[in-house]
């Protein structure tokens, strides 16, 4: 496991360095927004990674309810934790970009509202996990909540398509709405962030498995009166 993690880091590091090079040096400045446009690459990469993370949580929760295997619950929880961090990155970079592009730090636009909602919902999911002591019940209740919270993910994606929004539309029906040189930087950023997500997920899952082992050992000791 440790060897695999080492290999994963060895692959992700060069991808991340290349992505950072393209984001900050390789891609051209935007004609209107200037260098502040570079925030967009981080923003987009983090947004795609957060969506993938919550989709993994959704799928793992579904798998847990179907099979009742603890490893699915561990995967769901670890992915949600990492997903929350990436959603926070989306919000922070979005706020910074919005200040330059729209002149305001925050606006109650449908996309911004649903993203904030997403962040808070999965925050609630993690709070619920902490509030239940019994590991089986925790896994079951949080799997149910993860499935319910996932409703917001497609909603978040579709808001700018369904309702009037000031948020730019990058992926349109006619293809990408960015210049090809910018698209390369954007995709590289996505790849790098997905790599970071993968490594982080593996590490977090390993840690959670250890935590569960300790919990089970404690329960056994308590039952034996040790």
């Amino acid at each position: 496991m440790q060897k695999a993690a080492g290999w994963a880091v060895a692959i992700v590091c060069p991808v991340m360095i290349l992505a950072l090079y393209l984001n900050f040096l390789g891609a051209p400045d935007d004609a209107v927004l200037g260098p502040s446009q570079r925030i967009f690459y981080i923003h987009m990469g983090a947004a795609v990674t957060a969506a993938v993370a919550f989709t993994v949580t959704f799928a793992a929760s579904l798998a847990y309810l179907a099979t009742r295997r603890q490893r699915w619950d561990v995967l769901a929880a670890a992915s949600a934790e990492v997903g929350i961090v990436f959603t926070a990155m989306v919000l922070v970079t979005g706020i910074l970009w919005g200040r330059v592009a729209w002149g305001v730090w925050w606006t109650w636009d449908p996309r911004l509202t649903t993203t904030l909602m997403l962040w808070a919902l999965y925050g609630g999911y993690l709070i619920v996990r902490d509030a239940v002591d019994n590991s089986d019940r925790r896994a079951r209740i949080s799997a149910v909540l993860a499935l319910v919270a996932y409703v917001d993910v497609p909603l978040d994606y579709m808001t700018i398509r369904w309702w009037n929004s000031v948020h730019p539309l990058v992926i349109t029906n006619h293809g990408l709405a960015v210049a090809p040189s910018m698209a390369v930087a954007m995709f590289m950023s996505m790849a790098a962030m997905l790599g970071v997500y993968g490594v982080w997920l593996a590490l977090r899952m390993r840690l959670m498995a250890v935590e569960l082992g300790i919990e089970e050992a404690k329960a056994v000791w308590q039952n034996r009166g040790i």
């Binding site: 709070i127 619920v128 902490d130 509030a131 239940v132 002591d133 019940r137 209740i141 149910v144 909540l145």
Partner: peptide
């Protein structure tokens, strides 16, 4: 859901 969770007040 809250019925089954210890810290349901929050």
């Amino acid at each position: 859901v809250g019925f089954n969770v210890a810290g349901d007040d929050v």
